[in-house]
Amino acid sequence: MNMDEQYVVKVHTNTFLIRGKEYEVTAPAKFDQFTGELVDDKKLDDAAVELANEKYRQDMDIISPEEIKKYRAAKNLSQRDLASLMGWHPTTLALYEKGAFPSESNSQALKSLIIDRQI
């Protein structure tokens, strides 16, 4: 038997704790088909975590990495350019685009900038 044949992907519901708030996510997960035990799978596990993070962002009205990237692309700004415009270190913006949660004030500042510039 091939090692991959030992595993099966099924829908699984898990609860994630993000900054003291619980978020339930149903997503694909890998299981050992003989024992029924959940098996670590970086790609599937990361996708489930990102679903929970997105729920948190929506719940807390936090700007998403995609919104930041879309704005930068539309305005033809580099990360360094936008960071400078915001008065931040470029690493700060890079982290937000990789999925780090901005502070409430930084998130609101970005949202305000994006909304103001669309008018």
Results as ranks from 00 to 15, higher is better:
residue 55 K to N: 13
residue 90 P to T: 05
residue 102 P to R: 07
residue 66 E to I: 07
residue 92 T to K: 03
residue 79 Q to E: 12
residue 54 E to A: 06
residue 111 K to H: 08
residue 52 A to K: 00
residue 113 L to I: 11
residue 78 S to I: 01
residue 89 H to Y: 10
residue 93 L to W: 07
residue 19 R to S: 13
residue 13 T to N: 07
residue 113 L to K: 11
residue 53 N to V: 01
residue 30 K to A: 02
residue 32 D to G: 05
residue 59 D to N: 11
residue 15 T to E: 04
residue 44 L to Y: 01
residue 34 F to S: 03
residue 88 W to V: 05
residue 23 Y to F: 09
residue 81 D to N: 10
residue 96 Y to W: 08
residue 48 A to E: 03
residue 74 A to I: 06
residue 102 P to Y: 05
residue 1 M to S: 13
residue 37 E to V: 01
residue 77 L to Y: 15
residue 110 L to R: 00
residue 78 S to A: 08
residue 73 A to W: 10
residue 64 S to H: 02
residue 103 S to Q: 06
residue 1 M to Q: 14
residue 26 T to S: 14
residue 44 L to E: 05
residue 39 V to Y: 05
residue 4 D to E: 13
residue 70 K to R: 11
residue 76 N to F: 07
residue 74 A to W: 08
residue 86 M to W: 05
residue 115 I to R: 13
residue 39 V to E: 02
residue 29 A to K: 00
residue 72 R to L: 12
residue 8 V to I: 14
residue 48 A to R: 01
residue 103 S to H: 05
residue 27 A to K: 08
residue 46 D to W: 09
residue 95 L to D: 12
residue 69 K to T: 03
residue 26 T to R: 06
residue 31 F to H: 07
residue 106 N to L: 07
residue 60 M to Q: 11
residue 98 K to R: 14
residue 55 K to R: 14
residue 17 L to W: 06
residue 53 N to G: 04
residue 55 K to S: 10
residue 35 T to W: 00
residue 12 H to Y: 13
residue 33 Q to T: 10
residue 49 V to S: 02
residue 104 E to D: 11
residue 109 A to K: 01
residue 18 I to V: 13
residue 95 L to T: 04
residue 80 R to V: 09
residue 46 D to V: 07
residue 18 I to C: 05
residue 93 L to E: 04
residue 79 Q to P: 13
residue 37 E to C: 01
residue 89 H to I: 06
residue 113 L to V: 05
residue 81 D to Q: 11
residue 54 E to I: 01
residue 23 Y to M: 07
residue 45 D to Q: 14
residue 66 E to T: 08
residue 35 T to R: 00
residue 41 D to N: 15
residue 12 H to E: 06
residue 76 N to G: 09
residue 5 E to I: 02
residue 68 I to T: 01
residue 34 F to R: 01
residue 49 V to R: 04
residue 10 K to E: 09
residue 83 A to K: 10
residue 30 K to L: 09
residue 107 S to Q: 12
residue 14 N to I: 02
residue 73 A to K: 15
residue 34 F to G: 10
residue 105 S to I: 03
residue 88 W to A: 02
residue 31 F to V: 00
residue 92 T to C: 08
residue 114 I to N: 00
residue 84 S to Q: 09
residue 69 K to P: 02
residue 107 S to C: 12
residue 50 E to S: 14
residue 75 K to W: 11
residue 111 K to G: 06
residue 79 Q to Y: 11
residue 29 A to G: 02
residue 115 I to C: 05
residue 51 L to G: 04
residue 78 S to T: 01
residue 104 E to L: 13
residue 3 M to D: 15
residue 23 Y to Q: 09
residue 22 E to C: 03
residue 81 D to F: 05
residue 67 E to V: 09
residue 79 Q to R: 14
residue 38 L to T: 04
residue 73 A to R: 15
residue 24 E to A: 10
residue 9 V to G: 08
residue 54 E to D: 06
residue 112 S to V: 12
residue 83 A to L: 09
residue 13 T to V: 06
residue 50 E to R: 15
